[in-house]
Design a protein around this nucleic acid. Structure first.
Lengths: 227, 227, 227, 227
DNA sequence: TATGAATGAGCCTTCATTCAT
DNA sequence: GATGAATGAAGGCTCATTCAT
């Protein structure tokens, strides 16, 4: 055939990447075939190998693209948020938004994280770390600022967030339910921050503060007199 | 040619099941090969098919074994627990124990839940539902008894528990860290029940009483001096 | 299990034969499995081999049964028929009757005649020859008695009969049409005996008569003159 | 490793088709193996699948080739024939010629028509219909023109022709006899057109000629005397 | 650079037959 | 005599990758 006349490499590369993305979303890594990617990219299999060393390479490039776009989108918006609760809600909502915009991507990311290949040390793991940083920072800042418990185990907290998200998304998608990122993020963040338990609270904050204020005042007064 | 010495069918079956278990732990379903299972069970591939109709059947048999043992172990111990917190800690610890006893199994279960085959409706899904029942009951009982927030979204809570567990285990195992089920269960349950947020109150009743005692003492002293 | 208590060999053999017959009717030789036959005969595969040397043997035994029954049924009735046309109609009708009574059998016989194994020299061929004898005799007797053309090529005629029957049955069965042996036998025999061709005859006789008239006239005239 | 020298796709395809043809002639569809075809085409099995989607596809391609060539050969010659008897003789001779040129093909076609797969609706059936059209037209035209009995059952007649041919060829080939298409076509057509039966009337040609000779002689003699 | 034909190892599954029990 | 567990060869098919063109 007449090859598409003089495509610049970058363009061709992008086409292949796009095709690969579609295929890797539709099928897991092992089940995706280079033949299908080539067909969708409108070239032959051999051509793929002039742009990517092998299938894994191509897959990693797709992942990089996905994460890069994701991070580029999150970065500025995250930077403008200060409160821990706000940040948490934003990150959860943004994560849910992926599942809404591109359900295949969520599935792919979750799926491939436990692939046949070792996850730790993989490209996917490295990329994921960058993404997870936003959450890690949110949590550690939260502790520093006194908005989260001082004894919070950050890694454990992070796992609850992402693990919960993953299961939640899978469950809802599996049942064909709609996901409303904002509302659901509010609920999830609320549950995480306050816990499942029944708040003895009502007894809670205002009265206690008042009592302690009274106490402090009294003790100060006594110390003064003691002098 | 040389037939292996005859064994009782049940024995052979168990051998094959054991071999299959090892292989399915090491590789995901699609990547596991009947050839490898046969080799590990010290028989030829054909033999496998006299015990199991096909690869999926064999896989399901492995899963059934795992879950049956798990559920049989949990059932009586769970039945003897009443408090929501106790139950939660027990179930979490038991789940973590799987990862300690048989790290491959955790990975396998998590992995296959997102397999290529539709998860919903699969044997795995059916088995998993039975297992998850313990948690579901714990949570709904907890709400009924007023030990958990009345507005708790049970499905969401369940997803946080299992999602968090899954990520936690994967993370720790991936980093080669040791897991201490009891301690970790305490921490996880605590975090889930109380939330990430800073307790304005640490509150609790005993301290409150102590404060009031302190207060009473001070006030009494003041009154004494005032005289 | 408790084996069926002391079945006499002949009974068991008959059971196996019956099961084999069902299976060989349903599937062609290669596709029929000893396992299925054993299951249908309610015994295990090994048992089959105590009654028949191998699958082919078993198949041949089934065929022998079929042909023996067929021949035993035809023999006396054929013996009572004299006219060539009657015999032909009877044999055709009887053949069609097989397709009506036991469509599987016709299919099986036709099918296996061109099996992978060489047909000539096979057991099936030998059995078939006995069956075909009835037709062969009918045709050769017919010629001898002057009821069939003296120059009839017997083998060719026989092939037309059975080839036609085979195709006819297959066609009708394939289209789901009903077969009425008697009526169809009449039609087929008629067509074979009289041919496809338009009888020149009607046209033929008038001219012949004219010739004979002419001849008679001449001869009479000659006789007259001779006097 | 060492790749065969590149060939043009069409060439390779033809080689594979040729190899497949040989194998499908030698064995029935189910018994033919892709391995054998590959070996005969001097390539590996995988290569076959770059030309044909699967075994059935390859088989159908072989059949299509055979029928296309056959029909292309018959078409123009058939078009030039008018009389029913001529056409019939031609078609029969042509059919026999297949058995002479390529004895395997006849066997294959007959064999596969009763394959395990349903024949009706198969590619083979579709192709065969086109081939059979020539005979169908011959017969229906024959009736229309008054050259065949007006009450001729066309389907039945067609089955006699092809059934007879099939059996005849199988019988002769099976016995290692030579086939002489032209002579045999004359005989077969004759038998079909005139039937097996003793012609009471047509008295046939030789006698008629003898009579007319006698008649001519007599009349000549009389005329002589009259002078 | 792009091509695309060829590779070949590997996969799951079937089944007639054997033989120790 | 009957059993039935074990065999092992064979089958169709897939696919990432290579390399001559």
């Amino acid at each position: 055939m007449t090859a598409l006349p003089r495509r610049r490499k970058a363009v061709r590369r992008a086409e292949i990447l796009g095709a690969a993305r579609e295929v890797f979303i539709a099928r897991r890594f092992e089940d995706a075939s280079m033949a299908e990617i080539a067909a969708r990219a409108d070239c032959v299999e051999g051509t793929l190998y002039t742009y990517f060393r092998n299938k894994r390479d191509l897959f990693d490039a797709v992942l990089t693209d996905v994460y890069d776009a994701l991070i580029a989108d999150i970065e500025p918006r995250f930077a403008s948020l200060d409160g821990t609760a706000d940040r948490l809600r934003f990150l959860i909502a943004r994560h849910l938004q992926i599942a809404v915009d591109d359900p295949g991507i969520s599935a792919m990311l979750g799926r491939e994280a436990r692939g046949g290949q070792p996850y730790f040390g993989s490209k996917l793991h490295a990329l994921n770390r960058r993404y997870v940083q936003f959450m890690t920072r949110t949590l550690s800042d939260g502790v520093e600022r006194g908005e989260l418990r001082a004894d919070l185990d950050l890694a454990m907290a992070r796992d609850f967030v992402f693990g919960g998200l993953e299961h939640r998304v899978r469950d809802l998608l599996g049942r064909g339910r709609r996901i409303e990122p904002a509302r659901m993020a509010r609920e999830m963040a609320g549950l995480l921050l306050e816990g499942f338990g029944q708040r003895a609270a009502p007894a809670a904050e205002a009265p206690l503060e008042r009592i302690e204020a009274r106490l402090a005042r009294l003790e100060g007064e006594l110390r003064a007199r003691a002098r």
